[in-house]
Amino acid sequence: ADDGLVVTIGYLITEAESLWITTSDGVTVPGHVVGYDQETGFGLVQALQPMGTPSMALGDSGAVQVSDELIAAAYGGLEQAIKTVLTAKREFAGYWEYVLDEALFITPSHASWGGAALIGEDGKLLGIGSLLVQQIGESGEQSGANMIIPIDLLKPVLDDLRMYGKRNAPPRPWLGFLVQEVSHHLVVSGIYDGCPAERAGLQVGDIIREVDSDPVSGLANLFRRIWRSGHAGVDVPLTIMRNRESNTVTVRSIDRNDSLKSASIH
């Protein structure tokens, strides 16, 4: 925006106590974290001094089609802008309790994907770069692709992030574990120190079979079933397999934001 509001990927600014913004012209100004949306992954930063750069309008990421030619641009001006192609629009599930109903995927990938802008032919912002992933083509070849968070997901929560620093709605339950799919099993691959999963006694290597007696398959299905249990603070019963024995572990969930340090002025 013309008032110095910058949209980026949230993991770049999580728990930041101070930050600086540098433009492609070499102008550096102080900034402040405005907000971070856990559900989408977007982060907002406010420049505290004029940057002297033009703003970019938000585009319509829902209208972009597979095979459309686009531009991916990161810090560094035109030298860091590349032509790319939208290769897929599909669901994405991340092992850190994260699901997008529809993400954008582009190839070739940008080397500086984190926080990069995906720009349409009209010069409007279509999304923000999040990850480098591997895609398998029809002939079996692997190629690097960027996962892009569609800008349409920002629009419904933009005012909330500016006003409150997060979306103004009851937060999802968060358990504080990492889960990966291994041979069609949902395996706990990591647990955050001091978080609900650790306090409940979950262990790395546990296989998750059910949430509140409902069988689950796939990361997206697992996380959505946890979120359907209620708001942050709800007890989430998990049926797990450990050492070939079935056990039930009840995890008292929390709001993810409560576990993060914040320099917010909200």
Score class of each variant (00 low, 15 high):
residue 4 G to P: 10
residue 10 G to M: 05
residue 11 Y to F: 15
residue 17 E to F: 08
residue 19 L to Y: 03
residue 20 W to H: 13
residue 22 T to M: 12
residue 31 G to L: 11
residue 32 H to P: 01
residue 34 V to I: 14
residue 37 D to I: 07
residue 38 Q to P: 04
residue 39 E to C: 06
residue 41 G to W: 03
residue 42 F to L: 10
residue 46 Q to R: 14
residue 50 P to C: 11
residue 50 P to Y: 10
residue 52 G to N: 08
residue 53 T to Q: 13
residue 55 S to A: 13
residue 56 M to H: 03
residue 56 M to W: 02
residue 56 M to A: 05
residue 57 A to C: 06
residue 59 G to K: 00
residue 60 D to R: 06
residue 61 S to E: 10
residue 64 V to P: 10
residue 67 S to A: 15
residue 70 L to F: 03
residue 71 I to C: 00
residue 71 I to W: 04
residue 72 A to C: 09
residue 78 L to H: 08
residue 79 E to T: 09
residue 82 I to H: 07
residue 84 T to G: 10
residue 87 T to E: 08
residue 89 K to H: 04
residue 89 K to N: 05
residue 91 E to H: 02
residue 91 E to A: 11
residue 92 F to M: 11
residue 92 F to K: 01
residue 92 F to D: 06
residue 96 W to H: 15
residue 101 D to T: 01
residue 104 L to H: 05
residue 104 L to Q: 09
residue 106 I to C: 05
residue 106 I to N: 01
residue 107 T to H: 04
residue 108 P to T: 02
residue 109 S to W: 01
residue 112 S to M: 10
residue 113 W to R: 11
residue 118 L to F: 08
residue 120 G to D: 12
residue 121 E to N: 14
residue 122 D to G: 11
residue 122 D to P: 05
residue 124 K to V: 07
residue 125 L to M: 07
residue 125 L to W: 02
residue 126 L to M: 13
residue 126 L to V: 13
residue 126 L to S: 11
residue 127 G to T: 04
residue 128 I to N: 03
residue 129 G to Y: 03
residue 135 Q to D: 07
residue 137 G to D: 15
residue 138 E to K: 14
residue 143 S to F: 14
residue 143 S to I: 01
residue 144 G to K: 06
residue 148 I to Q: 14
residue 157 V to S: 00
residue 157 V to A: 01
residue 159 D to Y: 02
residue 159 D to W: 01
residue 161 L to Q: 00
residue 166 K to P: 00
residue 166 K to F: 10
residue 168 N to P: 05
residue 170 P to S: 03
residue 171 P to L: 05
residue 171 P to S: 07
residue 172 R to S: 12
residue 174 W to A: 13
residue 174 W to K: 07
residue 174 W to L: 12
residue 178 L to S: 12
residue 179 V to Y: 00
residue 183 S to N: 13
residue 185 H to P: 03
residue 186 L to D: 00
residue 189 S to E: 05
residue 190 G to Q: 13
residue 192 Y to Q: 13
residue 192 Y to D: 13
residue 195 C to I: 00
residue 195 C to W: 09
residue 200 A to R: 02
residue 201 G to P: 12
residue 202 L to N: 00
residue 206 D to T: 06
residue 206 D to W: 04
residue 209 R to D: 11
residue 209 R to E: 14
residue 211 V to F: 07
residue 215 P to Q: 04
residue 216 V to K: 01
residue 217 S to N: 11
residue 223 F to P: 07
residue 224 R to H: 08
residue 224 R to D: 02
residue 225 R to F: 00
residue 225 R to D: 07
residue 226 I to W: 00
residue 229 S to L: 09
residue 229 S to K: 11
residue 232 A to C: 06
residue 237 P to M: 03
residue 237 P to R: 01
residue 238 L to M: 08
residue 238 L to W: 01
residue 243 N to L: 11
residue 247 N to V: 04
residue 249 V to E: 07
residue 253 S to M: 12
residue 256 R to D: 12
residue 257 N to S: 14
residue 257 N to R: 14
residue 260 L to Y: 15
residue 266 H to W: 13
residue 266 H to K: 09
